[in-house]
Design a binder for these strands. Structure first.
Lengths: 156, 156
DNA sequence: GCTAAATTCACCCTAAAGTATGACCGAAAT
DNA sequence: ATTTCGGTCATACTTTAGGGTGAATTTAGC
């Protein structure tokens, strides 16, 4: 955009204009008060202005643009399906490995009888384990146990 | 680095040096063959060189660096807690509103008695509803019903 | 080697869950 | 007007879950 270009090089343009105005002012004053031929100074001033412009143009043309790369990290929300066991919570409850086995199968909706068959132990054993789990999780029912265990990240 | 700076502005410096050399060459030739006072041209050349340098310096100093913004997508693993009900799955099961109410409270670990009190109906009503839910979800136990309902995104 | 904790199992008993069946009511659909 | 469906409730019965207690065996730490 034209406006964008102007605002971008505002200082450079301002410098050039100011220099030109200053020179003209000086010349005008000289002509007004001293009737002397100052063509040399005028000539020098013109050359200065022109070559300053040339230098600016050259520099802008030839110098590689200063690029500042700003890296912005954009959050990409991803559904985290990776379950990380909360060992701290597990230790706090004091649930043993075997009890955790029972709890896991419980969470899959198995009955005590099915869990017993799955783990090759008796139904009574599972009852004991599940009772211990309930006590350690401070709940009364298996559904509550599963719910709480999931909340504590003890099970997926 | 100094070397980096030189290589970066190689062309600019070359231009300046070439201009200076050219001027000196001209002056030297003039002095050698024509014995005339060419101080004005020498003066102009000096001014030209100096102001070209000034322009270059100015431009380099004042030119605003172009900023390039690069967005890098960073994966942020987040537990997506936004639950979206799978209405298609719900319709498929044929579970009614009331049955869903019971299922939700079931998932919270409440007993049939507690659900009955919560919904201001009798225990038998809850038993009927839960039995219907089990049949519609093709399961036998409440724990399985909760597990399956969660898998189907019928409940959070 | 001894002790403590974990694992296993048994028996009894109560509470809760689940099955089956039938019935009533009201709203919506045919 | 009749049927269908959802919601309500009841009764009878079976199965499962859960509490309490005790005990044998194994495992792991000191």
């Amino acid at each position: 955009m034209t406006f964008g270009y102007i605002s971008k090089h505002k200082q450079t343009i301002l410098y050039g204009v100011a220099l030109a105005v200053l020179l003209f002012l000086l010349k005008w004053l000289e002509w007004r008060f001293i009737i002397v031929d100052h063509t040399i100074e005028l000539y020098a001033g013109c050359i200065a202005v022109i070559f300053t412009g040339l230098g600016v143009w050259l520099a802008l043309k030839l110098s590689k643009p200063k690029t500042t790369v700003i890296t912005v990290e954009k959050e990409l929300r991803v559904n985290d399906s990776t379950f990380v066991l909360n060992e701290a919570a597990l230790d706090e409850t004091g649930i043993s490995k075997r009890e955790l086995d029972v709890l896991l199968l419980m969470a899959e909706g198995l009955s005590n009888q099915e869990i017993a068959e799955r783990l090759f132990v008796s139904l009574n054993t599972i009852k004991t384990h599940s009772s211990n789990v309930f006590a350690k999780l401070d709940v009364e029912r298996r559904t509550q146990a599963v719910e709480k265990a999931k909340r504590l990240s003890i099970i997926p």
